[in-house]
Nucleic acid binder design. Structure first.
Lengths: 261, 261
DNA sequence: GAATGACGTTCGAAATATCGAAACGCCAGG
DNA sequence: CCTGGCGTTTCGATATTTCGAACGTCATTC
């Protein structure tokens, strides 16, 4: 009974092993062999062999008491290698820091992965009233593109066909009071981003959270990253904040861009 | 010709696939198939199959121009799942922040992985004169235990046999002006850590960098983590700094400890 | 306290997914 | 026009993986 090989030329064992690693999340930090086997539709013995392999390499470790497995420190190294490989991050670091020092606000450096934004650097603002999301967002966090300032900056300059294909795969879920849930409205705003070179997020990701972002463009013109400042709620009009912070943000983005290849 | 199976019961494909991921480092962020094949002593075709698998899962991505491969964003997710799985980090976060707010110094939360310390959270101190290492140390960084304050705090309360076995595998390399390169001197200092409940690093990891650390002990008594503050060089005597900052540090460590299970 | 069930783990025979040599198409340099 | 290196594809042989079954251990149940 020749089971149709789902993908030819790919390594099944490697796929399965990595699926095991991915099964561990902050919500489910410890898993047993049987749990894993059920979840991935494998036999326990097969699962055990993969887990044993991962454990012997330090990617998993076993809890002595419960006999369940947790992610090991080696996985951290992998992730950290990824971050370190992004030369962009080193270049941008000092500029981000200066941005936060002068504005007082938390600033971020972000790249896009398909429909998500990933934070790759983050400088916290002055101690004081932190927003809820300020705590839950870390370097490495993913947020949707469509309802974040950095996301819009990263989308706005995509070639139209690419953008369309991307947006078709995004559910415009209402995440906060003012999330744009209409595709036309989002497109209009992206047009605005192209005109002004700035993107805003006015309570679209989380209530009481505003943000302004600027794209970082490589020599080729492609937008490779974006920076933003997160602004805790204030009675000020968004347009005032934009005219106050926008130029600084763009200047910083451009300084970073000139050092990007 | 029965080649002696190096490890029975382990998955060769998974091992090799992960070895490929690990071959990418910040120093060598982009690698080609042939490069990888040489490095891991595999054939190009085998290497290609693993790389194709990793790429199809988003763990690697191929550069359009050079056809070489880089680590993909999925790897980041893995790494940060590990961080997120450490409940300790969430508990300690606000306390670390408060520690930095009151002292003005950069503070860190660290755990031990064998002979290394791994930074798992970090709150930067006030803008100003940053030390060189302040820039190169990130969350996820590894530093040796024997020449760091957090490292000593993490070693000091180990059962003696475990400690001995660990120290036997550590080269006490002189990394900075005052690194302890003598095992007896190090043991004496660990004794001091046990007495005072504080560990210090006085230009042992890098010149002009000092640090004070306190262990975080679980209910079981085991030291599960350590916190520290990094102190830029000043003419003050180390003992004065310890008596000035030590109590705050210990109070913070104890507050964190009471919420750890 | 025996019986039950779930768990992690080990073993072996069966077979399948994996391996590596060889060849392909491409490009750059000689 | 050849040469050498690259990434990629193919294909038959086989080494690697697979899955069922069984073991020892632990809680829980009766």
């Amino acid at each position: 009974m020749p089971k149709p090989t789902s993908d030819s030329g790919l390594s099944q064992s490697l796929e399965r092993g990595l699926a095991i690693l991915c099964a561990f999340t902050p919500d489910r930090p410890a898993l047993g062999i049987s749990e894993l086997a059920r979840e991935l539709a494998l036999t326990r013995s097969t699962t055990h062999r993969y887990v044993a392999t991962l454990a012997s390499l330090g990617f998993l470790e076993q809890d002595d008491a419960t006999r369940r497995y947790r992610l090991g420190p080696r996985v951290l190294d992998l992730g950290f290698s990824t971050l370190g490989s992004l030369g962009l991050r080193e270049i941008a670091g000092p500029h981000l820091r200066r941005l936060t020092d002068t504005t007082g606000h938390t600033s971020n450096l972000a790249i896009r992965d398909d429909t998500d934004v990933i934070l790759i650097d983050r400088v916290r603002g002055r101690p004081g009233r932190y927003h809820h999301l300020e705590f839950t967002l870390h370097v490495g966090s993913r947020i949707p593109t469509y309802c974040s300032a950095t996301g819009k900056a990263l989308l706005a300059f995509l070639p139209r066909p690419d953008l369309d294909r991307l947006l078709d795969r995004i559910d415009l879920i209402q995440r906060a009071p003012r999330t744009l849930t209409d595709k036309q409205a989002l497109l209009a705003e992206l047009q605005q981003v192209r005109r002004t070179g700035l993107a805003v997020n006015d309570e679209e990701l989380e209530s009481a959270l505003r943000s302004i972002a600027a794209p970082i463009r490589a020599r080729s013109g492609e937008v490779v990253a974006a920076i933003n400042v997160a602004i805790p709620w204030s009675p000020a009009a968004m347009s005032d904040l934009v005219s106050q912070l926008g130029p600084t943000l763009q200047a910083t983005a451009n300084q970073i861009a000139t050092r990007v290849i």
